[in-house]
């Protein structure tokens, strides 16, 4: 039976046509099953098709083999029930912070007062109260990415896709935003799917880490993260999981320092 918000990716393949060359296969029979409210990370080497998979789920790219179903229904283009946060914050520079976030509600069928309240609440949720009238160039990288997260969730989507959202931030801001992301995930109960290069980040945040291998991208293994939250990055279990995942990614785990 179809559960609302249940994401099923079944045998999805994707090839890109390149002029004058044989087509490039980026995804090969990828299957995923994400329960409503779960936090799932996709990790894997560059070029394994992680971001391509997100683009398919968000609906920016609709040509693929296999099925992508949400609540049993195939995806037909972008919808407000799915939000996304990109690696670049992608705030529109000519809109203030609040207008940027309100843009996500432009086509939501809510009363104006509800929209205004949702924008205000989500600015506060990501810790940016007081910056409503600021333009993006006045925000630091971390603040801009918080705003992008607020824009991603303000419309209360069932699923939030995170395409390396913290990848461009400095290490300290990144760790801080990981904690924020976890707090928001628990509070809002939105399914989150995170694409990341950072194995620590994936383990820290996720219920499940899906390791993709390239190329073409395919699921190498799926690892359940059963550790209680908040997680201690230096704990023995955490490090053991990290080594397992790195090994699955084809890295030489033994050569890496264990923290």
């Amino acid at each position: 039976m179809a559960t609302p918000g249940h994401l099923e990716v079944r045998n999805v393949s994707k090839t890109y046509a390149v002029a004058g060359r044989p087509p490039v296969r980026v995804l090969s029979r990828v299957s995923l099953d994400v329960q409503p409210g779960a936090f799932v990370s996709l990790v894997g080497p560059s070029g394994c098709g992680k971001s391509t998979l997100l683009r398919l789920i968000i609906g920016l790219d609709r040509e693929h083999g296999g099925d992508i179903l949400i609540g049993g229904q195939p995806i037909e283009g972008p919808a407000l029930s799915r939000g996304i946060v990109f690696q670049d914050h992608r705030l529109l520079p000519w809109l203030t912070l609040e207008d940027n976030i309100a843009l996500a509600l432009e086509n939501a069928r809510w009363a104006a007062a509800d929209k205004a309240a949702a924008v205000r609440d989500h600015i506060a949720l990501v810790g940016l109260a007081g910056f409503e009238k600021a333009y993006p160039h006045q925000l630091s990288g971390g603040m801009a990415q918080r705003a992008a997260i607020a824009r991603g969730i303000v419309g209360r989507p069932e699923i939030l896709l995170l395409d390396e959202p913290l990848g461009a931030l400095d290490a300290l801001t990144r760790v801080r935003l990981q904690a924020e992301l976890q707090r928001i995930w628990r509070l809002e109960r939105i399914t989150m799917i995170l694409v990341t290069h950072d194995v620590d980040e994936a383990i820290y945040l996720s219920d499940q880490v899906v390791v993709l291998a390239g190329s073409p991208g395919r699921v190498a293994t799926e690892i359940e993260i059963g550790l209680p939250r908040p997680r201690d990055r230096a704990s023995v279990e955490f490090v053991a999981l990290k080594q397992r995942i790195l090994a699955a990614m084809g890295e030489d785990a033994a050569q890496r320092p264990a923290a």
Binding site: A124, V126, G127, Q138, G141, G142, M143, L172, R183
Partner: peptide, 25 residues
């Protein structure tokens, strides 16, 4: 966490990440 605490948290973040937010003009 209260809103106030988050706001402070937010501004503390700016303070660390490359100086306080510049005034509009």
């Amino acid at each position: 966490m209260s809103n106030t605490a988050e706001a402070i948290d937010g501004s503390a973040l700016v303070g660390r990440a490359g100086g306080p937010a510049r005034p509009a003009r």
